[in-house]
Each structure stands twice: as C-alpha cells, then as structure tokens.
Design a protein around this nucleic acid. Sequence first.
DNA 1: ACCATTTACTTGACTTAGTCAACTATATCG
DNA 2: CGATATAGTTGACTAAGTCAAGTAAATGGT
Lengths: 316, 316
Amino acid sequence: MTIHHHPKNEAPNKQLIDAVRAFNRFYTRQIGLLDEGLLKSAFSLTEARVLYELAHRDGLTATDLGRDLGLDAGYVSRLLKKFERHDLISRSTLVSDARQSSIALTPAGRNAFAPLNKDSHDQVAALLDRLPVSEQDRLVKSMRTIQALLDESAEPKIPYLLRPLQIGDIGWITRRQGMLYAQDYGWDETYEALVAEILAAFVKSFDPKWERSWIAERDGEVVGSVFVVRKSPEVAKLRLLYVEPSARGLGIGGRLVDECIAFARAKGYKTLTLWTNDILGSARRIYQAAGFKLIDEERHHSFGKDLVGQTWDLEL
Amino acid sequence: MTIHHHPKNEAPNKQLIDAVRAFNRFYTRQIGLLDEGLLKSAFSLTEARVLYELAHRDGLTATDLGRDLGLDAGYVSRLLKKFERHDLISRSTLVSDARQSSIALTPAGRNAFAPLNKDSHDQVAALLDRLPVSEQDRLVKSMRTIQALLDESAEPKIPYLLRPLQIGDIGWITRRQGMLYAQDYGWDETYEALVAEILAAFVKSFDPKWERSWIAERDGEVVGSVFVVRKSPEVAKLRLLYVEPSARGLGIGGRLVDECIAFARAKGYKTLTLWTNDILGSARRIYQAAGFKLIDEERHHSFGKDLVGQTWDLEL
DNA sequence: ACCATTTACTTGACTTAGTCAACTATATCG
DNA sequence: CGATATAGTTGACTAAGTCAAGTAAATGGT
C-alpha cells in the first residue's frame, strides 16, 4: 500500500510479529502442498510461474520477470533461452531500447501453459470446495485485505472519496462512534444509543432540500462522516462529525466540515451551529480552523461521565 | 477447519478461485522477499525451517519433520546428520520404537538458531512497522482468519456462543439487518432507521430485571441476535430476531428463540408476542416450531413495499 | 561530441538443494 | 511365524539456482 499517513510507530507488538511469522510458516507449507500437485508437468515451478506471467501480461522484458518473480537474471536468461528453443516464446527487440526485448508466448506456448493453468485452477477449486460458500467469501476477503495492505506497488489509491448515505451506513457509523468513544473516553452504551437515535431520526425525517450527509470512504470502507440538519429556516446544525483513527491526518475531518459549510451557505442558512464536548480536542481544532466561534459551555452528566458541552456557531 | 456444516457446493466461483491464485502468487513472492534477507546466514532456508521446528517443539522425530515441512525423508536424514556432526542436535532412540529417535537442539544448536530467529523476527517487525497500528491489526486478523479456515487440523471450534449486548453491537445489528432486508426484499433505508430506533430505545430504557438481549457470536463475529422487551407486566415482546446468512443451518435462530421463551417463562410473563412480516419465511418456521400461533394479520405499507404484518403469540 | 557509468542481458563455472531407489532394522498385523 | 509396513540411511543422480565476468546499448555530465 501507499503510505499516506505514517504515525510514529512504537516497535510492533511481539504478539503480532509472532502471528505473522506463524502465518508465513503456515502459508509456506500451504503453497508447498499446492505446488506439489503441479510437479508432474514438464515444467518446474519457476518455469510455470514465468509462463503464468507471460500468459497474463503483455510486453514483459527479461528484467521485468526477474524483478517480479525474484529470480536471478542469469537464471531467467537461461529459462527464456530454453523456452525459445522449444518455440514457446518469441522475443522482439524493443525499438526504444535495443538491449531489451519484449517477450510473448507463441501459440505453442499458450498450449503448453493451458494444462498447467488448468491444474492450478482445479487445485485451488478443490481447496475452496472444502469450505461452505460463506467461508470461501471470508477467505478471499482476508486474502484481498492482506494483499492490499502489503502490496507496496498498489496503484496510488484515491485517498478517500465522499458520497451520500447508503443502507448500512447508519449502523456502521453508530457502531464505530460507540466503540471509539467508549475506548478513548470511557463513554457507556448510552452514547451509541444516542447516535442510533439521531441517525434514525435523520433518515426518517430527511429533507433532501435542506439536509445532507457525507460519508468518506476509503478502499470501500467508511472512514468518516458528517450530517447537516435543518434546525430552523435560518439555522443549520452540523452533527456527528467523525473520522476513523486509521484515516486521520488526511484532512478528511476538515474536508467534511468544509462541505457542510458550503452546503449551508448555498442553501441560504444564516448560521451553522454544532454541539460538542470540550474533551474532543481534534474535532475542536477543526471547527476553530473553519471559523466556528465558541458560543456557550455547560456542564452535563452523560454517557456515564461528567462532561462539558460546547455550542459553536459559524455565521455564514 | 473441521466442517460442521457443508452445504452442497456448486463448483466454486471462478472469481474466487482467481483471487486465491492471485494471492498465492503474491504471497509466494512475499515469502521469497522475506527469505532473501535470511540467506546470508550459514543455514539454508530449509535448514532454518528445521531448526525453527526443533526450537519450538519437543520430541520431534525425523519423520515428523519431513511430514510437517514437506521434505523428502532422505534429505531430512542428511540435514540431521549434518546438524549432528556440528553438534547442533542430539538424538535419543525412542524406547517405544527403536527405529525412531527423538531429536532435540543442543545448547549449541540453540545458540546457532538464536540469530536466525532474531533476523526473521526483525524482518517481520520491519514489515509491520511500515503500517499504522490499526492496519497491523487488520493484517494479522486476516491472517488468522485464513489460517483458521484452511487449517484442517484446527481444533473443532465452538459453532457459536451467546453473550449479552456490548458496545458496538447495536450499530452492527442495525447495519446488517438494514443491508440484508434491502438485499433480499428491497426494503428501503427506513427499515434500517427503524432498527436503529428500536435498538436505541432498548438501550435507553433497558430494565435488566425484565428485559434481555442475546448476541450470537462466531469466531469473534456477530452472527445473530434477538431481544426481549417488557410490553406490560403480563406480556413480553420478542424483537429483531436475525441470523447471518453465513451462519444459517446451525440452529442459531431456534436457539435464540428458545432463550427468549425460557427467559419470559422464568420472569413470569404470561405471553410472549412478536410482530413480523409474512414474507420472512425462515423466521416464521422458527416461530411455528417454537409453538407460536398466528393471532392477527394486517396489510401495511412500509420500507417502500406493500407488506403483510403478522402478530404471533406464545402462551407461556 | 565524448567519455564514464549504468543497465539489460548473456555465458561459463559452480554449488546447493532436492530426488529416487535400494537397503537395513524394527514394528505391526493376522 | 511370516508377510507387510514403517523409520531412517545411503549412494548416485539431477534440477535449480548463484556468481562473476563479459558484451552491447543507453544515459548523464561536461
């Protein structure tokens, strides 16, 4: 993955390290088992890997293959020479660089690869077939997660995108806010219930002309959200701003607030107001930066804690 | 994993197969990269794997090593002979079987293994260190999932367990119910809002003496839930029964309803009532099996659909 | 335009890692 | 007790991969 935000890490937890090492040992063996089944073919495992790359990507050079598969250049050279001798590949010198040549499978090469590919496919199919469908999904989802997290070369992804509310979001936001504030500030389950209540009311009385929601999504996961509701014809209220800890530092919070302000202005509201608690420092900094002014403070006891509530207004 | 429930599988989906193959190629490379760093040592990769096993498990025999690491018996024999020559291991013939011997690292063997182990540890630590902590957690969680799913020898796991509500649950249940009914029956976002509202009210007015919740959890994931609320001193109401599609067929639905009935009886309620919709067939079958009787039906328009609501009662 | 350096690939010489089959000693089954 | 299986060993072998030196083309700096 591309690292957009790299907080100062302490040395990673030993338990996590051991878990990763255990997985590596486990998966080394797992791959070994799958590969065993392919050994009967005329090709070695590495040859098969090379053929696979050639079958699936066009215009590769010898260096590309060596780099992507982690092979020695001399070894690649010999493999390719052998393939060429057997007429499995053809090479054409690049016009842009006469040292390199673009390698392609010949029809004969494709024919040779087909059974190999089928065997590998069938082997994986057999593996999956041992699991019920729901677990197949969990398996593949986990694999995709690992790949996305470890793949340095993943295409520079869009840091995040904003979209309106969808089904499933209000539950997710409820859950995440409930869990985060419980973890960070020790708030009890009534906070999660309050979020649920607010969001339920938002959906039920939603007036698209005067109200709006923004969900920040990254890699298909919700990482932040904010809501604007109509309090009166003159006053809009910003509610439930949150950004996932894992997505902080990307400016998502500020962006969400800016969207709210722009929307409130466009709709002709005179004031954008919001209510928060003084302990929520990072949210406060966002509001201040956006020009909100502290209007009022009052003590209250909520969510199992003594808190100081704050009202902030922005004149539009 | 041990397969408790193995529905008739069709041939697994090609997309899933390709995803698994992509992961295998990716992880082959990943392991290759990690292993490269260890090549400077005096030991080959396979030797290091053997040493690792010996360092972490006592009383292994040569056959055990060959089987667990997927190595040829002759090769193992030679590796062990070499280790013995360098005084890294000691072998003692088993009393139970004079052909086998139990292999143990000598102190010198442990010394030789230590730097190897440290290098591998550091390498993984460096890998993890590139990720923020939250992503480290996601990574390891995904690895554990894969391992649990693919490891045939994993201890037979508890199919599911029941526990009371925790923070984060009501959001999760809201989300999942909203998504499932949208997917299966085309209900709109007001259903999710209704669930949120009901659950918010449940938490806010929760009376532990007369009310209760049960969350079914499997592998740390919520896979079902049900709630009992007090409608009157005589009548308890069962609400929001649901079971994840992936966990159906384990009897979780029936179990949840049985818990509600037992609770309502124990508390001295006279009637357990519930409201549902006629299209929810699998829920209906559970209620019928538990002895509920259909009391009333009425048409209504909700969640963007024309529906037939049903009231079911069980006299306790 | 020219020279030093780098890159892409090739080749020869080599080592390491792993395989296979034959063999011994012991254990197990009926 | 004899047939068969298992644990481990060994010799003979091959496949797989490494390393260093070399050629030809490209690149960067002056």
